[in-house]
Design a protein around this nucleic acid. Sequence first.
DNA 1: GAGTCGTGGCA
DNA 2: TTGCCAAGACT
Length: 377
Amino acid sequence: MDPGPIEPLRSSLLDWWEDHGRHDIPWKLRPDGSRPGPGEPLDPFGVWVAEVMLQQTQLAVVLPYWHRLMAAFPDVGALAAASEHDVLMLWQGLGYYARARRLHGGAQRLVAAGGDPWPRTLEGWMALPGIGRSTAASILSSAFDLPHPILDGNVQRVVARLVAHPGPPKRDMAHFWRLSETVLDPHRPRAFNQALMDLGAGVCTPRQPCCGACPWRGRCAAYAAGDPGRLPVKDTSPPVPFQVIGVGVVRDKDGRVLIDQRLQEGLLGGLWEFPGGKQEPGEAIEATIQRELREELAIEVAVGEELITLEHAYSHKRLRFVVHLCRWRSGEPQPLASQQVRWVAPEELSSYPFPAANARIISALLLRLRASQRPAE
DNA sequence: GAGTCGTGGCA
DNA sequence: TTGCCAAGACT
């Protein structure tokens, strides 16, 4: 458990980081692209946006989303003044959409408070929606170079191997926080925390860590034990259920299609979708679609040909979407299980935020419509 | 405290 | 191909 003398651990990691770390992360640089000096503050807004996007999401995925959001909303005032629709438009495809709503709500709260809005304490940041201890510490060390230890997945993995922790980190988080605090270099917290994450992301990787490139190899208990890839120990995850979803792309006489906005809470909250629902045992998929549209929208439809079938895996369930074109027959659509419903022209679909699976349905629909406009030559 | 909450990359 | 997994927070 004792990580041993700390100072050589710190200096060896920082030396490694100078040559092998990531030094091109935009929110960790000055506006002119140069590296900040020790203690020099960075734009907390850009850091905040980045750290929220980085929750359970890798850096390479976040980068384009961060650039687009910062271009649209350069400061907290612009974000606070934006509509939730516009925020979700920039977040679509990134996942975990509650993060976007909480970021937006946090911006409005900070602006409403007035003055210099940026907290300088862990408690101040954690009071904002969507900010836990890990994200708060990341923001404070990144933006203000304050000596707060961090404990994201990278740090948990690096530390678990360093001390060869025998159990799942989740069960000993207090212990891991103390270890992160112990190793943290209090004189260069921003650089040290970034170095620790870069080590986890690039060298001390989940599978097949590159121990030959690791500055801590000589101090790593898991390396000494011979099988660092085995750590950290993880709890067995429950099997994910599989469900078939019948989806209707309903068109009216004018060629408009019917979409609904999902409820604010729960899966894909606040995003738009084509309506549908779970297939019941023994039920034909056409019957599923008819039933779901009747129950959730109070409309009657004629189910036509299949548009596309696609499978999509979420964190805790796998779904197969069977999508059929439908013709609207009767009934004014009612938002019985959604926030609102709307008839839109196909070319208008691009101005609504959709989850990834629905984006694929839209692509298939637009392809089909173009093909039908241009009969086979 | 165990479940819920996305997506794309990779072996 | 299938499964695993990532810079976590909230209930």
